[in-house]
């Protein structure tokens, strides 16, 4: 064998050994803990029940509700059109694939918002975008739409508008005649569109 090849061969074999000894890479490209913390502390993850109701009534096809409670609780009562993905199931590959569909906002809810928030954090770690938590969960849904009292005569216009909106939502979901359910102004939630990954374009 030619001597001049000995040095490169030794070097490459050495490198191959180093590569073998390197720690195994994690299967998913997860969001680093510090970035996850930033996401967790941002308030944009919450969506109010009013906003959810507004989109439900408009039959917005780009929103899907995800009930993260157990199957039993889901059967007993759930919001119209909601999917049931219990917290324990949520990071399974099939659900991850579903939740990473582009162009659809998934809104997690549970009875309060702790369980939904846990599911949300797990998904965020797996870099799922376009997911939100319904603030206050079903408890707040019911307290705002079914338990809210009429505002006093002296209430501000916003309060009266909010009450009218809530009553309209209640009527919509209890099968009463629908009034025009208009979401109170000043609550726009901006949803930043995901940047399209441009495929490598070819050409000459």
């Amino acid at each position: 064998m030619n001597k001049k090849y000995i040095i490169p061969v030794v070097l490459l074999v050495g490198l191959a050994f180093i590569l073998v000894l390197l720690p195994k890479k994690k299967p998913y490209n997860e969001l680093p803990a510090k970035d996850l913390l930033k996401q967790v502390t941002s308030s944009s993850k919450f969506i109010s029940p009013e906003f959810v109701a507004d989109r439900l009534i408009k039959k917005d096809p780009s929103m899907i509700l995800v009930d993260v409670r157990s199957e039993d609780l889901f059967r007993e009562y759930s919001l119209p059109g909601a999917l049931n993905i219990p917290l324990q199931e949520i990071v399974k590959p099939a659900q991850m694939e579903l939740l990473s569909q582009e162009g659809i906002d998934y809104i997690f809810y549970s009875t309060g918002d702790v369980l939904a928030d846990q599911a949300w954090i797990l998904c965020k770690r797996q870099r799922i975008d376009h997911i939100y938590v319904m603030k206050g969960g079903l408890n707040e849904w019911f307290s705002s739409f079914f338990m809210s009292l009429p505002p006093a005569e002296t209430a501000s216009n916003e309060e009266i508008e909010l009450y009218q909106f809530r009553s309209a939502v209640r009527q919509y979901f209890t099968g009463g005649e629908t009034q025009t359910a208009r979401k109170p102004a000043g609550e726009a939630i901006s949803i930043t569109p995901k940047k399209k990954k441009s495929a490598a374009e070819g050409g000459c």
Binding site: Y77, G112, D113, N139, F146, R170
Partner: peptide, 23 residues
């Protein structure tokens, strides 16, 4: 935190929603 504040079905029924079939 995850304890229901209301019996959701009963509340809906009290407002006249046809809950049983819906649920």
């Amino acid at each position: 935190a995850e304890k229901p504040a209301y019996n959701f079905k009963e509340v809906l029924e009290s407002f006249g929603a046809p809950v049983s079939s819906q649920a």
